[in-house]
């Protein structure tokens, strides 16, 4: 199974110990940034936007970590923040995802970008073709293996809505992938 349970977060140091706080922040973000990036990638369909959103989320975490009262809520906070940043970005730039404009290769001359395999690209492109509510819910489901309750908390919609949305999103995904599966 692809899901890997992450190690427990280290305890949060006292706010007065600046160096220890910085090290803790970096440990936490290093644990989550890859999944955050993948979530952002499925939301935007663009590597550069995904990197931008992930970094903005990390920076917000560095500045506002104190607002998160319980360490158990950090993961949810990170995803919620990234999702909000995505909505802001889209509103700010009127950035509708156009699947004809998806560019997964950063630069033709740079070889490591080719590490994205075709099926990974297909997955991202297919999700990018979906309506935003379906895309978010499926991304969280697939990227983080989150439960519908956790997805409900992150997106701020009722759990029942998440379940029915997931169901419809899976139908839509299957239709989009029909030639490939």
């Amino acid at each position: 199974m692809f899901h890997v349970v992450p190690p427990a977060l280290p305890p949060r140091p006292p706010a007065t110990d600046g160096a220890a706080v910085q090290a803790w922040l970096e440990t936490v973000i290093l644990q989550y940034y890859r999944q955050l990036y993948r979530y952002a990638l499925t939301l935007t369909g663009h590597e550069s936007d995904a990197a931008d959103l992930t970094q903005q989320t990390a920076v917000k975490f560095a500045r506002k970590y104190d607002d998160i009262r319980e360490d158990g809520a950090i993961k949810s906070w990170l995803y919620t923040t990234l999702h909000r940043e995505f909505l802001l970005l889209r509103r700010r730039e009127r950035h509708a995802v156009e699947f004809q404009e998806i560019h997964l290769e950063p630069d033709p001359g740079y070889s490591s970008a080719q590490e994205l395999r075709v099926d990974s690209r297909t997955a991202v492109e297919t999700l990018a073709k979906m309506e935003e509510p379906h895309r978010s819910v499926l991304s969280l489901f697939y990227v983080e293996d989150l439960s519908y309750r956790e997805i409900s908390e992150i997106l701020g919609v009722p759990a029942g809505t998440v379940m029915s949305r997931l169901s419809r999103a899976k139908d839509a995904l299957r239709r989009l992938l029909q030639p490939a599966v």
Partner: peptide, 15 residues
């Protein structure tokens, strides 16, 4: 399909 999608997305790496 769920497993395949999850595995595929997990192969996308930051730049």
């Amino acid at each position: 399909l769920d497993v395949a999608m999850g595995s595929a997305l997990h192969r996308a790496e930051p730049p």
